[in-house]
């Protein structure tokens, strides 16, 4: 079948847009492994810059990962029960709280950071620890965890599931851990990936909250762009991309709702067998 010219013109347009977005990423990644950016790729390919990045900024990578994991732990402990309570309560107050929770996403990170510094900046030890950054990250990522668990909870009839479990003698904690949590697994997983990804890449808040001793990866990145050779900054970007890619892929895999694959068996067959057995 011959495709109409419209198809080809649309394809060309799409490819142009993709190229516009992707080429800079590739250029930057290439720059990170080029001996000398000004002479181009013919000056040779090297891992030198990457080693240099690891040498200077390894601690920022560790700190970023540590904060991401801590942030995940806190959002899990706070977010999952919050989502459960919000799903259970139907009142006006619960809905208002739900909206309130999303505010940090709407307010610019710089403003939140400033508010945190004004309020808690006086606590010297707290201000200079990575815990200060963690607080910002939790504020920013918590709504994503809550929303994603809430979405799953409102798609399953969890109240009836819980009543079913209770009728069978299960206590609240048995119900929560044995029935509720396993059935929101997909939401928890999607939320977790989201939280880790956002935390690792967060710059706005972190840039304001960090101290020279508590630099995270994106802050280090800005620092290297400002003060290092272009190749080092590019190599740093490459390291960042390698770290974040698996998370993004995971988000794609688990974040989208799965199609129901197996077809439910028709009632007819089994009904007949049992009827037959009864007649015997």
């Amino acid at each position: 079948m011959r495709r109409p010219w419209l198809f080809y013109s649309q394809l060309a347009f799409t490819l142009c847009v993709c190229a516009f977005l992707i080429v800079p990423v590739i250029m930057s990644m290439m720059a990170g492994v080029t001996e000398n950016y000004f002479y181009g790729i013919k000056s040779g390919i090297t891992l030198r810059w990457i080693y240099e990045v690891l040498d200077i900024y390894l601690d920022t990578i560790y700190l970023s990962l540590m904060i991401a994991v801590a942030c995940l732990a806190v959002t899990l402990i706070l977010g999952v029960p919050t989502a459960y309570v919000l799903a259970k309560k139907s009142g006006r107050l619960a809905r208002m709280f739900e909206e309130f929770l999303v505010l940090p996403v709407a307010i610019p990170g710089l403003a939140i950071a400033l508010a945190l510094i004004i309020t808690y900046g006086g606590f010297r030890d707290f201000r200079s620890s990575w815990g200060f950054i963690l607080v910002g990250h939790v504020l920013y990522t918590l709504p994503f965890m809550v929303r994603s668990v809430l979405a799953v909870l409102s798609s399953i009839d969890f109240k009836t599931l819980e009543e079913g479990a209770a009728s069978l003698g299960a206590s609240f904690w048995q119900r929560f851990f044995g029935v509720i949590l396993p059935n929101c697994r997909s939401g928890i997983l999607a939320g977790s990936l989201m939280v880790v990804t956002l935390s690792v890449g967060e710059f706005n808040l972190t840039w304001m909250l960090h101290t020279p001793l508590t630099k995270t990866l994106p802050v280090g990145l800005a620092d290297s762009y400002a003060s290092m050779r272009l190749e080092v900054g590019s190599a740093y970007t490459l390291v960042f991309l390698i770290m974040i890619m698996p998370l993004l892929a995971g988000l794609q895999m688990f974040g989208t709702p799965k199609d129901r694959k197996p077809e439910a068996q028709s009632d007819d067959m089994t009904g007949k067998t049992s009827l037959k057995e009864k007649n015997l």
Binding site: D157, L161, G164, A166, S167
Partner: peptide
């Protein structure tokens, strides 16, 4: 309910 030792069957089955 969990202490009453009942059996309950729901319209929506409520299977896990």
């Amino acid at each position: 309910i969990e202490k009453r030792n009942i059996g309950m069957v729901f319209q929506s089955y409520a299977l896990f």
